[in-house]
Nucleic acid binder design. Structure first.
Length: 612
RNA sequence: UGGGGAUUAGUGUAACGGUAGCACGACUGACUCUGGAUCAGUUAGUCAAGGUUCGAAUCCUUGAUCCCCAGCCA
């Protein structure tokens, strides 16, 4: 982003600009216009890249205007929510770089807010609505309520319990609250309009009876608020100015406003009058959630992948979860850049992973140290090397894009490993690597010329023979001669074997959710073998699974430069000419495990694919 | 067949009555001790039809297509 051409402002920024100009939300003590956003996850699953867009949008807005950003758990449904999810969500939001008031590095939970802390206040307001004649206790069961609701094209009918007296409603709600009724026997409903074309306004449920322990409230409550009733008040209590959510909540907005207006009815700015002071009324704004091709994003499908054993867990590097991307080696900076580039709008489109991958490469190119690793080794012997045991140490640049990254020393000796693909006995046109008679540069080392090969009894090439030019130490050519190709290598005696996990897209189809037809018979057949038989998930019942890429994970044993053994878990490097890799947490002291984060662009490989 | 929202190159996103631009992708070429990176260039778009206007992606009308809503989920 250059300062000369400022990025255009998306529609939410424009709304905030206008609000600030009008002084709509007042000012902070420091005089800046008040901007207060929040990210309100329900702790019932792991965060994914789509949530990152929302987190970064909300945090970014607060940050830009010197405002505040809250992390608040929308924990209104005890039967679905767990502490495990709370912990992972906090870690993910922090990792993305967002901070909230009271956040501390030594205590991840510091400053985190919970909707459940407002339960008493919400309950008081519910009682207030009953007193105002705007809410009633309904004895209809779930099925009956559905019947009375009508359909998209037909209006609903009033509940027979709609006209109970205020006192009766008060008594009943008090008993519900005390836990005197069984689950599902009664609900508290708002009295709005059973004929509204917006189904959400057909006397929506405010409270349901749930005899369930809450992850923070324990057994204190027997009634729990519904999203629509609760959410606006959570925002109101925290002083949120812009309550940003996704498109599907658009037709909940009238309800969001209705509930706050209902509480405010009869209230006054100075608190005079029977109901007290007016409560804050934030503005709900909806934007299009992120969709990404070649992956699935729904909680249900993600859970299915985990439970069905199609991946190794929520943080499997193939998952679009934040924890998966982190383990895969995606830097948070790259995710932030991606989210800023895809923009914010109300059009429900599908972004391309290519852009995400571009952002990852772009970041890693500048930050990742280069290392040489041979993923598919073949031995190369230098015939004119002085002696079997002679070793020299050569100087290598760690990152040509970053002088500050410094240099390292790498051992060179008579026997090396090079990439099998870097040698061909009978090269096709435009193949500039090693073949009999050809000369290539060994990165940071010498120019070598291929003199022949050694074969096994089956006639396969098992060793490549070369001579080296001692005058080219370091890779320079004093006589100015050019070689078309530079290949990477490792010294056979010094290289360390490492497990390398080569990840590819999880799905073969850009839109796995859509066409089951996209999974061709060939793909389905290919999956037949690799499908995990222990998984209880029947493939047929989930057509999108037919699009799974059977080669989304390939594991190889590579030979890596000795310096790779010093890398810490999470460290990100580039294996030259291969791609970006990071050290996986499965690593042990003696054996490193690397995840391929993303491959380098490979124009030669692409060329070959086109021919195929 | 009720209501709400949306529609600009392959994809995402600007232009807010005044030259349709940017990024990714794709394709050329240059350069290169990574067939990476970098640099230069090419490609390609206003859903449709009417109307208003000197001038329309933008305003109006009609139509098309897509998304969302009938949980005591969020």
């Amino acid at each position: 982003m250059s300062e000369s051409e400022p990025r255009s402002r998306h529609f939410i920024q424009q709304i905030v600009d206008a609000d600030n100009a009008a002084g709509r939300w007042g000012h902070w003590p420091d005089g800046r216009p008040r901007v207060h956003t929040r990210f309100p996850p329900e702790p019932n699953g792991y965060l994914h890249i789509g949530h990152a867009k929302s987190i970064l949008l909300n945090y970014g807005l607060a940050d830009e205007f010197g405002g505040k950003f809250n992390l608040r758990f929308d924990d209104t449904n005890p039967v679905k929510e767990e502490q495990e999810y709370v912990d992972s969500i906090i870690a993910d939001v922090r990792w993305l770089g967002a901070r909230w008031p009271g956040a501390r590095d030594d205590d991840p939970e510091a400053g985190v807010l919970y909707a459940s802390d407002y339960f008493q206040q919400m309950h008081d307001w519910a009682v207030e609505l009953i007193k105002k004649g705007k809410a009633f206790v309904c004895d209809l069961n779930a099925e009956q309520i559905r019947e009375h609701r009508g359909t998209l094209t037909r209006p609903g009918r009033n509940s027979p319990f709609r006209d109970r007296s205020v006192q009766e409603n008060l008594d009943l709600f008090a008993k519900m609250t005390r836990g005197e009724f069984p689950d599902g026997s009664r609900v508290l409903r708002a009295k709005i309009d059973m004929t509204s074309p917006n189904l959400n306004l057909r006397d929506p449920v405010m409270y349901r009876i749930l005899h369930a322990d809450h992850h923070r409230q324990g057994a204190r409550w027997h009634v729990y608020p519904m999203y629509d009733w609760a959410h606006g008040f959570e925002d109101s209590i925290e002083g949120i100015t812009h309550s940003i959510c996704t498109l599907e909540f658009e037709h909940h907005r009238p309800l969001y406003d209705w509930f706050i207006d209902a509480v405010n009815e009869g209230r006054t700015a100075d608190g005079s009058g029977p109901w007290g002071r007016t409560i804050h009324h934030p503005q709900q704004i909806e934007f299009a959630r992120l969709n990404l091709n070649y992956t699935v994003m729904s909680k249900r499908k993600l859970l299915h992948l985990v439970k069905g054993g199609f991946v190794r867990g929520w943080d499997d590097p193939r998952m679009p979860t934040i924890s998966g991307l982190r383990r895969r080696g995606y830097p948070p900076e790259a995710i932030r850049e991606f989210c800023s580039r895809i923009g914010v709008a109300k059009f429900n489109g599908v972004s391309e992973v290519q852009l995400l991958e571009h952002c990852v490469r772009d970041d890693l190119n500048k930050t990742a140290s280069r290392v040489m690793a041979v993923l598919n080794p073949i031995k190369l012997v230098i015939e004119n090397w002085s002696a079997e045991t002679d070793v020299i140490w050569l100087d290598a640049v760690n990152n040509p894009e970053d002088a500050a990254a410094g240099h390292r020393r790498i051992p060179f000796s008579r026997e090396l490993f090079i990439e099998r693909d870097d040698f061909m006995e009978t090269p096709p046109p435009k193949y500039w690597r090693l073949f009999p008679g050809n000369e290539v540069r060994l990165r940071w080392a010498f120019l070598v010329r291929c003199t022949g090969v050694v074969r096994n009894s089956q006639g396969e090439v098992i060793e490549i023979r070369c001579t080296y030019d001692p005058a080219t130490r370091g890779g320079d050519t004093p006589d100015g001669r050019k070689v078309k190709s530079t290949i990477h290598w490792v010294s056979a005696a010094h290289a360390a074997p490492a497990e390398v996990r080569l990840y590819d897209r999880l799905f073969l189809s850009p839109d796995p959710e859509e066409s089951s037809a996209a999974g061709s018979e060939a793909e389905t057949a290919a999956l037949g073998e690799s499908a995990d038989p222990s998984s209880g998930a029947p493939r047929g019942s989930e057509p999108w699974l037919a699009n799974l890429n059977p080669e989304s994970l390939r594991v190889v044993t590579a030979m890596v430069e000795p310096c790779a053994l010093e890398l810490q878990v999470g460290a990100r490097v580039q294996f030259e000419r291969h791609g970006y890799f990071c050290v996986d947490s499965d690593s042990t002291l003696t054996r490193r495990v690397f995840n391929r984060t993303v491959a380098l662009k490979d124009s030669w490989g692409k060329e070959q694919q086109k021919k195929a």
